[in-house]
Write a protein that binds this DNA or RNA. Structure first.
Length: 271
DNA sequence: CTAATCACCTGAAGGC
DNA sequence: TGCCTTCAGGTGATTA
C-alpha cells in the first residue's frame, strides 16, 4: 500500500537517521528479499544520499546503491534495540552508530536490490508524479491518444510513477473522470484538471504523513492520518461526499475501483 | 497495443 | 469454535 506519499514520508525520516552511517552488517532472514549479483552486500559502505523515484527508495552508497521497494507490506524501521525475535523481520542492516535498520514485510513481496547503478532499476519507470519538470505539455504527451483506460494508465508505472490504487481512485474522483474512460476520450480541460488534482492529492497526503489503512507505518513507527480524508476509496455503497449518490465499486485491471457514478459519469464513446 | 490471468505471499474477514 | 473461501493490491511474466 505504500504509494508515493508514504514513501516520501519514509525517505524524509530516513535521511537524518542514515546519511553518513556505515553499514557494518547485513543479515538476510528471507532470501528473496535481497537481490544482488553476488547475493550478499559488501560491508563497510557509507550511505551517501537517500532519494525517491515513484515508489522506489534509492540509497546511494560509497560504492553502488541500495534500491528498496516496499510493495504491499514492507516497512523500514530504525531501532537501537534487538528486534530479531519479532514477526516478519526479513532483513537487518547493522549500522556503525549501533542503530539497526529493520526491513519488516509480512507478505514477503518487498525487495531490496543492491546494484552498481540505481538507474538499472529506476530507469524502467516513468517520470515521478511530483517531479517539478512534469509540465502540462509533458503530461498531455504521456496521455497521448492511447486506447487504454485511464485507471490502467495511472496504475502502469512506466508512464507516470508513484500513484497506486488508493490515490488513483481519489484523483479520478476529484477530477470527475470515470475510471474506465479511455485516455483518448479525455478532454484537454479534464487532462489539465487531472494533473493539478494529482499534485494536490499527493502533496496533501504527504502533509498528512500518508494514509494508514493497514500496514503502513513511518520509519519512526508513526501512523499517517490521510485515511480520514479519503473521499471514495473503500466507501462502497456509502453516500458520495459531494452529491450523496452511492459510491460504487467495480474491478479495473483486477483492482477494486471506487467511484461516484454521478460525479464521474461514463463518457459516451462516439461510434 | 490492450487486456486478462497468474504468481508471488500472508492475514483479515465473511460464510456456514 | 473452526474450517474454508475470498479479498486486499504492487509488479512482472505469460497468454490471448
Amino acid at each position: 500500500m505504500p504509494e508515493l506519499p508514504e514513501v516520501e514520508v519514509i525517505v524524509r525520516e530516513l535521511k537524518p537517521e542514515l546519511i553518513g552511517e556505515i553499514i557494518c552488517g547485513c543479515e538476510i532472514l528471507w532470501e528473496r528479499t535481497f537481490v544482488s549479483e553476488r547475493g550478499t552486500l559488501p560491508l563497510n559502505l557509507i550511505i551517501h544520499s537517500i532519494s525517491r523515484k515513484g515508489k522506489y527508495i534509492v540509497m546511494t552508497l560509497s560504492k553502488g546503491a541500495l534500491v528498496v521497494h516496499l510493495r504491499m507490506t514492507g516497512q523500514l524501521l530504525i531501532s537501537y534495540s534487538d528486534l530479531l525475535d519479532q514477526e516478519h523481520v526479513r532483513l537487518i542492516f547493522r549500522l556503525s552508530s549501533g542503530k539497526n535498520l529493520y526491513f519488516f514485510d509480512s507478505r514477503k513481496f518487498g525487495r531490496i536490490y543492491f546494484v552498481k547503478n540505481p538507474e538499472e532499476i529506476i530507469s524502467k519507470i516513468g517520470i515521478d508524479a511530483l517531479d517539478p519538470s512534469l509540465s502540462e505539455s509533458k503530461f498531455f504527451e504521456l496521455l497521448g491518444k492511447r486506447q487504454i483506460r485511464i485507471k490502467s494508465f495511472l496504475l502502469d508505472q512506466r508512464f507516470l510513477s508513484g500513484l497506486g490504487n488508493i490515490y488513483i481512485d481519489e484523483c479520478l474522483f476529484k477530477a470527475g473522470i470515470h475510471p474506465e474512460t479511455k485516455v483518448n476520450f479525455i478532454t484537454r480541460r479534464k487532462r489539465k484538471k487531472l494533473l493539478s488534482v494529482i499534485n494536490e492529492v499527493l502533496v496533501g497526503a504527504i502533509q498528512n504523513m500518508g494514509t494508514t489503512i493497514s500496514d503502513y507505518k513511518t520509519t519512526g513507527g508513526g501512523f499517517g492520518t490521510n485515511q480520514k480524508y479519503l473521499t471514495v476509496y473503500d466507501r462502497e455503497n456509502m453516500p458520495c461526499l459531494v452529491c450523496h449518490d452511492n459510491v460504487r465499486k467495480i474491478r479495473v485491471n483486477g483492482r477494486g475501483t471506487h467511484f461516484c457514478p454521478t460525479c464521474q459519469p461514463q463518457v459516451k464513446e462516439i461510434r
